[in-house]
Amino acid sequence: MSCRAGCGACCIAPSITTPIPGMPEGKPAGVRCVQLDDDNLCRLFGEASRPTVCRRFEYDRELCSDDREQALRILTQWEQATR
């Protein structure tokens, strides 16, 4: 299986400590990235300005689960466990 279009959990749950266009200080955990559009798609996908951490994140069944709400819960738990 591959990334679910419109999920966006990885653009909300984790913190990102590097600059993102529109978020020069990065983003805190649980905050929606400004580059996530209304359809939960990344506006920077495929662009050089997309943060490295985002480009390296890949779908993983254990993290992303079967639906968006589960993915948000799991990624939030992992974020809290790695603080």
Rank of each mutant, 00 (worst) to 15 (best):
Gly26Ser: 08
Ala29Arg: 04
Ile20Tyr: 02
Cys64Leu: 11
Asp66Asn: 11
Gln77Tyr: 09
Arg83Pro: 00
Gln77Ser: 12
Lys27Tyr: 01
Arg73Cys: 07
Ser15Gln: 14
Ala81Lys: 12
Thr17Cys: 06
Ala81Phe: 03
Ala29Thr: 03
Ala48Tyr: 04
Cys42Ser: 11
Tyr59Thr: 06
Leu44Lys: 05
Leu75Trp: 01
Leu72Trp: 08
Glu79Pro: 01
Thr18His: 05
Ile16His: 02
Asp37Ala: 06
Ala5Phe: 08
Gln35Trp: 00
Ala71Ile: 02
Leu75Pro: 01
Ser65Gln: 15
Phe45Lys: 13
Thr18Ser: 14
Tyr59Phe: 15
Gly46Ser: 10
Cys54Glu: 04
Cys42Glu: 07
Asp39Val: 03
Pro51Thr: 03
Leu63Cys: 08
Thr17Arg: 15
Asp67Tyr: 10
Arg73Ala: 14
Gly30Lys: 06
Glu47Ala: 11
Trp78Phe: 09
Gly6Val: 11
Arg83Thr: 08
Val34Gln: 14
Asn40Ile: 00
Tyr59Pro: 05
Ser65Leu: 15
Gly8Leu: 06
Cys11Lys: 02
Arg50Lys: 14
Ser65Trp: 04
Glu69Ile: 08
Cys11Asn: 07
Asp39His: 11
Pro14Arg: 06
Ala9Thr: 05
Thr82Pro: 00
Ala29Leu: 08
Arg56Cys: 05
Glu62Gly: 09
Glu69Gly: 01
Ile20Leu: 08
Glu79Phe: 01
Thr52Phe: 05
Gly22Pro: 09
Met23Tyr: 03
Cys33Tyr: 02
Glu58Arg: 15
Arg61Trp: 07
Phe45Asp: 07
Arg83Leu: 12
Ala9Glu: 02
Gly26Leu: 05
Ala13Tyr: 01
Ser65Phe: 00
Thr76His: 05
Lys27Ala: 12
Gly8Arg: 03
Glu62Cys: 06
Asp67Arg: 10
Pro21Val: 06
Leu44Tyr: 07
Ala48Gly: 05
Pro24Trp: 09
Phe57Pro: 00
Leu41Arg: 15
Gly8Ile: 02
Leu72Met: 14
Leu75Ala: 05
Asn40Met: 13
Tyr59Gln: 11
Asp66Ile: 08
Glu47Phe: 06
Gly22His: 10
Leu63Ser: 10
Ala71Trp: 01
Thr82Ala: 14
